[in-house]
Design a protein around this nucleic acid. Structure first.
Lengths: 364, 364
DNA sequence: CAATATGTGGAAAACGTTTTCTTCATGTCG
DNA sequence: CGACATGAAGAAAACGTTTTCCACATATTG
């Protein structure tokens, strides 16, 4: 608990001025070998480390970048952080992050605190459009993640419309006619997904029923399950807001005596690592969470460096359908498709990614 | 990207000195209503927020606390962060955290950076005992999480010995005779768990075979599975280092044609949220991850406040056995025990926690 | 040898706060 | 009415750095 040594201590110990020590440390100037040696000796002896706060005050740089996520318990977001962390370290920055826990008040507080301690932010937020300027108001470069930002502000996300369209197309192809979507309206991508689903299903002349979850969690997936299944016109396929909801949903559905996918197909979104291990293994859409974090951070660093061509405002990553066991296939072959496709293989990591299912349209 | 207003701007705008503004903001002194009104008006007009870096420099307090975890992709750790976050916010602090990714070099770098920006740290680390003083050397209050620290330094963890003993006891009771442990030697709790297993099994005159995983991940659980199962004397029960390993292991075991728990019982450790949803649902030991974070943070705040009685050095939380479907039960009843115990219930959240399985011993 | 370039090192200002000390005006008490 | 306590407000130092400018010694050039 002893006090940390300061640059002054080092200077005194080495018999030079603090300016000299500072310049030596930052390699801003060369000195006589004797002087350099003395300084280094003093630094080693005292275990000196320059105080980043003081340095930040004068340079205006913190050497840190921040990431704000909505829920640390959702692997989608932890993967984003993982990707972001890697790129930040590559750039010699360290990453601080906050979990806003879906709460507006907490988000305000945490972003306030975080924004002053970092050189830039990658932010996931459900804040309405007209509030986003508050985040920009911190005066730090910002990249929005998982949604577009205001005009001129870089952002990154996946093509939620395409993801939804893909799923619907696949389900229809496999013969489903009564499809339900469990949505989460406060979330940004929800609207686009809804559009994708509706567009696709309308093209096939099929209806869509919508249910609502109060949060994108396993617990909510559990809660909503019975009300979805107890409707008079029970769906033959359920698309969940994300994998967390789908996992909770499937758990209850099975305990209600449903067999998946025979009685009911279930689809998630995100392809979190655990979705491979549910029972049955979850069909989902990969949202490239880790790349989202990586590319978001790269975008941020280009933003910080100031070399962002104004043309690049929004990066859209392509979703990929990952078909596993929770969706019924029309053609029933001896071995089910998906991961079971190559049974008795020691390495089952090859998830069946049906890129071929990509719908033939482009988002405008 | 405009510059943030400073206290000087506010003072000028309100026609008072910066000292007055500072005192007003911190509530250190009362002022004439007119003056207070002017200051508040100026603050609102400029959107002023005091610069935490500058404040920290002079007060020596940052208003932040730090948490270092080993892997953000492991829900055990994210739960710790979640608990820690809650308590930190309760205390008016905000939480910064770093993911050291099991890498010593990264840990050094990140802790260096983090320690200067916070008022205290809760640290999970695999660093050998004789290196821990380096962390203490940062001159900040530290609480070690998941392991004991050096003498006199507070720490928190679960009783790993008890957890292991519990599992072994339960497996033996259920009739298993050939038990394997998939360990991860670099981890702190590994040694204690091994002791717990060996002690229990020796008491029953049973052997234990040990296998090694290179990291506590699902991928490693997958990798090690075939070599465990292809041994001449195949085990009838496998205890995995943690739930992640267990989940990976089970995935491959099933794809190798094993039925769990009929052919093989599998047990994890941690009780991560997803362990309820694996196929079959994973029997595990709850390590109270969230409480670990909460209590660790409470300990830290008492440490920061300086009122830690020297008697409280290490808090040990009690593990609880959570029996689900991945372990074979001796007595076969029509409905299997565990979560299936009450079938057809809409709320399957009541995991069967067999506290009765607690072994009759106490750790010394 | 004088004049100039070069390289080494220090003095001091600055960053945006908090805090101590001081000043000054006002109100209170005997 | 004078002495004194009280309260409001400001001046200035401090926190630990970086950075700009300047001084000095030495080396180079004509």
């Amino acid at each position: 608990m002893r006090k940390n040594p300061t640059i002054r201590d080092v200077a005194a110990n080495a018999g030079v001025s603090i300016a000299t020590v500072s310049k030596y440390i930052n390699g801003a100037q060369r000195f006589t070998p004797a002087v350099e040696h003395n300084i280094q000796a003093a630094i080693d002896k005292l275990g000196y480390q320059s105080n980043p706060l003081a340095r930040s005050m004068i340079t205006g740089k913190t050497g840190s970048v921040g990431v704000a996520i909505l829920d640390i318990c959702n692997p989608h977001f932890t993967n984003i952080v993982k990707g972001a962390n890697r790129v930040a370290l590559e750039h010699g920055y360290n990453l601080l992050f906050v979990d806003t826990e879906e709460s507006q008040a907490r988000e305000d507080e945490l972003l306030d605190a975080l924004s002053r301690r970092v050189d830039g932010l990658v932010v996931s937020t459900r804040m309405p459009e007209d509030q986003l300027h508050r985040i920009l108001g911190y005066g730090k470069p910002v990249v929005f993640s998982g949604r577009p930002g205001p005009k001129g502000v870089p952002s990154i996300g996946i093509d939620a419309y395409a993801a939804a369209y893909m799923i619907a197309e696949m389900l229809v192809k496999q013969g489903h006619r009564n499809i339900a979507y469990i949505g989460f309206a406060p979330a940004r991508p929800d609207r686009e997904r809804m559009r994708g689903l509706v567009d696709c299903l309308e093209a096939h002349g099929l209806p869509l029923t919508r249910h609502e979850v109060r949060g994108p969690t396993m617990a909510e997936g559990e809660r909503v399950c019975s009300s979805v299944l107890l409707r008079k016109s029970k769906p033959d396929a359920v698309i969940c807001y994300n994998d967390m909801v789908a996992i909770g949903f499937m758990g209850v559905a099975r305990s209600l005596g449903m067999s998946i996918p025979e009685d009911l197909s279930v689809v998630g979104i995100d392809n979190i690592p655990f979705s491979r291990y549910t029972s049955p293994a979850l069909t989902t859409v990969d949202t490239q969470s880790e790349r989202l974090g990586e590319e978001g951070m790269r975008l941020l660093f280009r933003h910080i460096a100031g070399d962002l061509p104004t043309t690049v405002e929004h990066i859209t990553l392509e979703p990929r359908l990952v078909i596993r066991e929770s969706t019924r296939l029309r053609v029933s072959v001896p071995a089910r498709a998906g991961e079971q496709g190559k049974p008795r293989r020691a390495k089952p990591t090859s998830a069946a990614v049906l890129a071929s299912c990509k719908p033939a349209y482009r988002r405008t």
